[in-house]
Design a binder for these strands. Structure first.
Lengths: 210, 210, 210, 210
DNA sequence: GGATAATCGAGACGGTACGTCAAGTCTTCTT
DNA sequence: AAGAAGACTTGACGTACCGTCTCGATTATCC
């Protein structure tokens, strides 16, 4: 077999073996997708499944949370993209459905495990935020701010708060209630949050498109 | 020391020692509140701190998640109650602030740890739902349904979805973003979700009281 | 089922239940005969198999060694008897074969286990000596002393030493070497010890009857 | 402290630490010599006293019997040697006294414990036979066969049977009867077994040297 | 080309906690 | 009072991983 070695700069010594790195992330991914999730993930297990010495794992990651985070986010990140339909509600709704599809898939299990581990591991939750949530937030804020400028959205609401209001219920269902995240749910959620829970006092005509 | 023994019915055998039970839950509670949270909780540690044999712990609880759940929920449950001001928005807002106070306190740490453990332990998450969330939900649904009847709230929204919309953002902040949960946040959150995110197209006068 | 109760004297309280005693000894016997021997014998196991409370076992025997000893010796003792042929060598030889038959049987396993346990339990080894070995010794000494009086055996040898010389090799084979104890072995052993190992210097006619 | 590591062949991995091995055997030896003998020997105790992880003990020995056996036999084996006086009876008698001295000493306790454990542990008794008894037997057979050739001993007796006859009584006393093993006993034993128990029919003068 | 340096695999090391088992004691109700 | 039931403390069992370490082997750069 051909070993792939890294060639970074002109440092002396044997360069890092990229095969090992890949094998470790691959093994981690597979274990995370298994029945036990993050609880079944052990450094020893990773090393063995990757056919690698334990030292090699520890050399590059300080703990299993880091490996898990990297294994997950390098693989899953590109999958969720924002559309751009011109309508705030449509953009958000489509992206929500996309997100829910990911959360419902096998990857959702891994993500759940990761988020669970994060409750007692600050680094892991930080990785979760910075590598998973923040990239989406950037795009989300962009869409919302465009909607504010176009007059579609109220200008007096903090954008992050608005995103929390939209996505919070999804995470609540996903993380705590473990309920299905289907299209109907997304539609109803969008409607409720965009329009508000209160009855309209005036007989203003509401135009809810579904 | 005086040992307190249970006297249930006329069963043969030595009755269960209530001191042991109490000591175990107490010890668990203290460990959970410590620096490491759920990660520092070990069955051995519980037994030692409670001055109890490990077997005694295992006799009554199958794993540390169960002990943790019982330790937490028997202690914290009564603390969060709903007010009844007559106004939907006020009731919810006050209760939300109450909830946020709990989540912000030392107990919040325990709860966070518990929910974390629940991601890889179905029984624990079930305990979380049934013993922590559901009792609150019952009262919440009651308030909302009253508001629907009085015309304050839109009748076309599923009550549980509405509660998800209201409380989801709190959990998102609490579990994922680890951001402060202060009164200002609650006020803004209530406003956004009750009124909706969209701009009102007509020049209808909005009466937001803050 | 009819419970058999003891009626010793006019002592107050419930009399001892003889069924329990018998069941305990029976259970002990069965466990001792199993694959693990003395190592598989536990007070808990005895109580359970006998359908008896642990307390009842502890009330009458201080430890499992005592139970084992009583279970074994009350059952096996009557089996070994000395014949009386009139000839010292014949009596001993026949009894030896009888003994070897017992040691070779399933009971031998129990006995081996018991003696093993006795190495770290003074009470057990004492029970072994007083209840198993000594009764035989009494009879053995009798036979030997008769043989001394009749001139068949040398009068200058301590009787116990003689018995050690005769039976020691059997125990050595049984306990240490775990070799078969067949009739041929007994015949050769008797011959060697009775006649001595040394060559006869004079041309004295030897009359070895086999 | 300087750690001594083994250098066997070109095997991969960290070489075995000889210090640990030595410390384990040393600790085992000390515990075996203590008040409780084999009964006080626990894997945990060995590890703790040796300043070693429990895993390290289990890595090299499957159970405490194995550790005990190795601890004992590597230390005690060289102590018992056969003399070579030219006379069969003298050689045996001196060696017997040597053996009895060992059995009587502190080491005797360990050996007794080992032999006891062996009754329910085939591997242990096998170790006892192959590492303790057989080396002596080899030399014993040699002496006896020389005695047969020189005409001092009867040629019609199996050598192993003869050795059983000579040493069996010692083990009987040591293992079962727990009686003292002094020089007088050895002298009388030798006399009885070499000369035989039977009275001499002819008036042949016996020359017993004591 | 030989020294130096970093990486790799393998696996032993001292530890911690696991979940189980049995020991022997204690407390209750029943007979 | 004896017996059953069963909860209690204690302590060892054997296993799984932890994170660290010490090897020989490999693969580069630098002199």
């Amino acid at each position: 077999m051909e070993k792939v070695l890294e060639k970074v700069e002109n440092r002396p010594g044997r360069p890092r073996c990229l095969d090992a790195r890949r094998a470790i992330l691959e093994a981690t991914w597979e274990i995370l997708g298994g029945a036990g999730g993050f609880a079944d993930l052990t450094m020893e297990g990773i090393a063995e499944r990757a056919g690698v010495g334990k030292t090699t794992v520890y050399r590059w990651w300080p703990n299993k949370a880091s490996v898990a985070a990297e294994a997950f986010f390098t693989r899953i990140e590109p999958k969720v993209r924002f559309p751009d339909t011109g309508s705030l509600r449509e953009d958000i709704r489509l992206q929500m459905k996309e997100l829910c599809k990911v959360l419902t898939s096998r990857n959702g299990r891994v993500l759940r495990a990761l988020l669970g581990g994060g409750q007692s591991d600050p680094e892991l939750i930080e990785a979760f935020r910075s590598q998973w949530m923040e990239p989406r937030r950037v795009k989300g804020r962009e869409i919302l701010s465009k909607a504010v400028r176009s007059g579609e959205m109220r200008p007096d609401i903090d954008l992050d708060l608005a995103l929390d209001a939209l996505y919070g219920p999804i995470y609540l269902r996903f993380h705590v209630k473990h309920l299905p995240l289907d299209d109907l749910f997304v539609d109803q959620l969008c409607d409720s949050v965009f329009e508000g829970l209160l009855a309209k006092t005036s007989a203003r005509p509401r135009s809810r498109a579904h």
